[in-house]
């Protein structure tokens, strides 16, 4: 039984990793800093660890999908991230692909058994 759980865990991890990027990009039409993003995602029932999100934000910035800016006016300096122009484009494409994928998969799940 525990072995099944292990496999399930791994598969879920892979699934989450793929969807995480879409989820994160979707929230960055307005500038957010890392921790506020964790909170707002959590509020919407989308769990993500800060230790995963922070490196991801940096990677997306390096790829040019996000732009960032340090805000040093507040009590502590915070790095705000925002979708870049190409980021918006990529995100919109991703949403189309994602919906497509959901539809196709749903189709498979309805017709399971190969009938």
């Amino acid at each position: 039984m525990s072995e099944t759980n292990e496999h399930l865990d791994k598969l879920m991890q892979e699934l989450r990793r793929g969807t995480l990027t879409i989820g994160v990009l979707s929230q960055l039409y307005e500038p957010q800093y890392g921790y506020s993003l964790v909170a707002s995602l959590e509020e919407k029932d989308f769990q993500v660890e800060a230790g995963t999100l922070y490196p991801l934000l940096r990677r997306l910035e390096k790829q040019g999908l996000l732009v960032s800016e340090w805000d040093t006016n507040e009590t502590r300096p915070r790095k705000y991230y925002l979708l870049s122009e190409s980021g918006k484009e990529v995100f919109e494409q991703l949403v189309v692909e994602w919906k497509d994928m959901v539809n196709r998969l749903d189709n498979l799940l309805i017709n399971k058994g190969g009938s």
């Binding site: 890392g34 921790y35 800060a50 502590r76 300096p77 915070r78 790095k79």
Partner: peptide
Amino acid sequence: SQREDIAKELRGLIEDM
């Protein structure tokens, strides 16, 4: 090249948490 920036961000994160 990335150390300083990441350190600053991490410190902020820990304080926020």
